[in-house]
Structure formats: structure tokens, C-alpha cells
């Protein structure tokens, strides 16, 4: 750095490169300022407003912390906490998806016919349109739908408080299983075969090799899937919303649909903003835990 400054030619080039560097980043900086930073400020400000969204933001009345009160302890608190609880129950699939993902990856990692075809078949649901497959699940799990006909039952899947969450979990599991399988498969393929061969020669059993060599190699992927799963799970919107709309009648409203409800149906943008920041804080907590664990790992 110092050396560069001492050379006159370097300084001239340095100025040019400074200018060009910022110029190349300019579009994305403008994009972030207008479409991310400015909305963040508006969102923060709107938490203290009685704002319907139909009037200009500066015409909206400042009402202090009333929105916080109504959301956390007041008239909307029951809906808010229920929505958060519902959101968490829709994360039950995360550990199941990871466990099935490991097992499937172990199977697909074997040298056998059809392993590549299986990889594609299991991954296919991941790229499908969430709208298309959620509507598909809606029709399959309806009262006279394909699942009830298949098993000869008459279960009211989508109207029941618990069963509707089971359906959402099945849907997310079905759609995401190929992804976790693929991630674990990549992890398994990164395990060095030399190490396994050496362990085999030393007489280690298959179970011991799995526990001592394979499992530690899969740890970073498990951690990554867990963190991204929780972050995505906290913000879940599409699947429950398309399946049963706001889900007010059957307790399927999530935190994200709570926010959308207060924007779209109730036109209370201040309440929506408080809900959004409450959710954001949960996301931040998960991020910080992740960073802390990442840092500790790097030390060792």
C-alpha cells in the first residue's frame, strides 16, 4: 500500500482505478439505496404511524408505540403469537428432511445402476413452481381428493388445525428433499476415499467409519441446511398462503401472512411493519448464532 503511494505512476493509476471501481459498482449501489435501504427506513418509520398506505406517508398520523402495544399485548397479539407458533410448527420438516436426505444420499452414493436417474427424479420437485404444486396438493388433499380416495378415508385435511400443518410440512418436505439429498451427496463425495481405504485396512467396521470419518465431513452441510432451513422457515409464506389463503379459520396463518394480511386486507401498514421487524429480529438472532458458531469453528 505504502509502496504504491510512493510511486507517482501508481498514484495516478490508483485514482483511475478508484473511480472505475465505484463506477462498476454504481448500478448495484443505486439499486440497494432505492429498493432496499430506502424501504428499510420507511418500514422503520411506519412502525410509529397510523398509515393505511392510501395516503402519503408524511400525511399519516404519528401514534407513537401504539402499534407495538396492539401487536405484542393488545388486540392483535393473539393473532400475532398464533401466527408465530404456526410458523414454527411448519419447521417440523427440517430435521426430517435432513435425516431422509442423509439416508437417500448414502444410497445414491453407491456404485449401482440408476443412481444418477434417482438424483434427477428426487430433485425434480425442487424446481417446480410453488404455485402449481401447492394447488396440486390442495386438490389432492381436499375432502373428496386423491389422497382420501386412495386410502378410502374421509379426512378433512385442510380444515383441521393440526392436519393442515401436516399437509404444509409434507408439501415442503416433498419439495425440498431433493435439495438436502443433493447437498449431502456433495458432502459424501468430498470425503476422501483414501482415508476410508486406510481405515478399512486398519480393520475399522463400516459403522465406525461412518461415525468417525463420514459424519464429521457432513457436519458443515448439516449446519448450513439447518440455518438456511430456519431462516426460510421463519419467512414461510407461499405454501400455506396458496394452500389455505390467510388460514384464519384453521390456524394456518404464518408470520409472513400476518404481515401481508395487515397490508392487503386490513390496510394497517404500521401493524404490518411491527410484525415484520419482530420477524426480522428472529432472523438476526439466527444469523448471529450462526456467525458465532462459524467463528468458533475457525479458531480450531
Amino acid at each position: 500500500m505504502l509502496l504504491e503511494v510512493s510511486k507517482p505512476k501508481g498514484r495516478r493509476l490508483g485514482w483511475k482505478e478508484n473511480y472505475v471501481g465505484w463506477l462498476y459498482c454504481l448500478p448495484i449501489i443505486i439499486g440497494i439505496l432505492i429498493f432496499t435501504a430506502f424501504p428499510i427506513i420507511l418500514s422503520l418509520y411506519s412502525t410509529v404511524l397510523d398509515w393505511s398506505g392510501f395516503q402519503e406517508i408524511f400525511d399519516a398520523k404519528v401514534i407513537g408505540f401504539d402499534n407495538f402495544k396492539t401487536v405484542f399485548t393488545g388486540i392483535y397479539s393473539k393473532t400475532f403469537w398464533k401466527a408465530l407458533g404456526n410458523t414454527i410448527t411448519m419447521m417440523v420438516q427440517i430435521p426430517i428432511s435432513m435425516l431422509l436426505g442423509v439416508l437417500l444420499a448414502l444410497g445414491m452414493n453407491r456404485k449401482m445402476a440408476g443412481a444418477k436417474v434417482f438424483r434427477v427424479l428426487y430433485y425434480l420437485p425442487c424446481i417446480t413452481s410453488v404455485v402449481a404444486v401447492t394447488i396440486l396438493f390442495n386438490r389432492m388433499f381436499s375432502l373428496n381428493g386423491a389422497i382420501n380416495s386412495l386410502f378410502g378415508k374421509e379426512i378433512n385435511w385442510l380444515q383441521d388445525d393440526v392436519l393442515v400443518k401436516v399437509v404444509v410440512n409434507i408439501l415442503i418436505l416433498w419439495k425440498g428433499l431433493g435439495y438436502s439429498t443433493l447437498m449431502y451427496l456433495a458432502g459424501l463425495q468430498s470425503v476422501s476415499t483414501d482415508q476410508i481405504e486406510a481405515a478399512k485396512i486398519d480393520g475399522a467396521s463400516g459403522a465406525k467409519i461412518f461415525l468417525k470419518i463420514t459424519m464429521p465431513a457432513l457436519y458443515p452441510i448439516t449446519f448450513y441446511l439447518l440455518v438456511t432451513g430456519i431462516m426460510g422457515g421463519l419467512q414461510i409464506f407461499n405454501e400455506p398462503f396458496i394452500l389455505v389463503k390467510y388460514g384464519l379459520a384453521n390456524n394456518a396463518m404464518t408470520s409472513a401472512s400476518f404481515i401481508y394480511y395487515f397490508y392487503n386486507e386490513s390496510a394497517r401498514l404500521g401493524v404490518a411493519a411491527v410484525g415484520a421487524w419482530a420477524l426480522a429480529i428472529l432472523v438476526f438472532i439466527v444469523t448471529f448464532i450462526q456467525m458465532a458458531i462459524d467463528n468458533r469453528k475457525e479458531k480450531y
Binding site: F38, P39, I40, S43, A276, V283, F284
Partner: peptide, 24 residues
């Protein structure tokens, strides 16, 4: 510094900005 700020914006959940974005 710019890169850190950009990474920071990735932490902001979409649910926070989606409704003010409509206003923008």
C-alpha cells in the same frame, strides 16, 4: 466497507422491505 454493507443488506429479510417497496 462497501462489500460488508452489501453483505449486510442480504441479512434483511424480504418481509421487512416488501410492503414499503410497494410505496416506493
Amino acid at each position: 466497507a462497501l462489500f460488508m454493507v452489501m453483505l449486510g443488506t442480504m441479512m434483511i429479510p424480504f418481509t421487512v422491505i416488501m410492503i414499503p417497496q410497494v410505496y416506493v
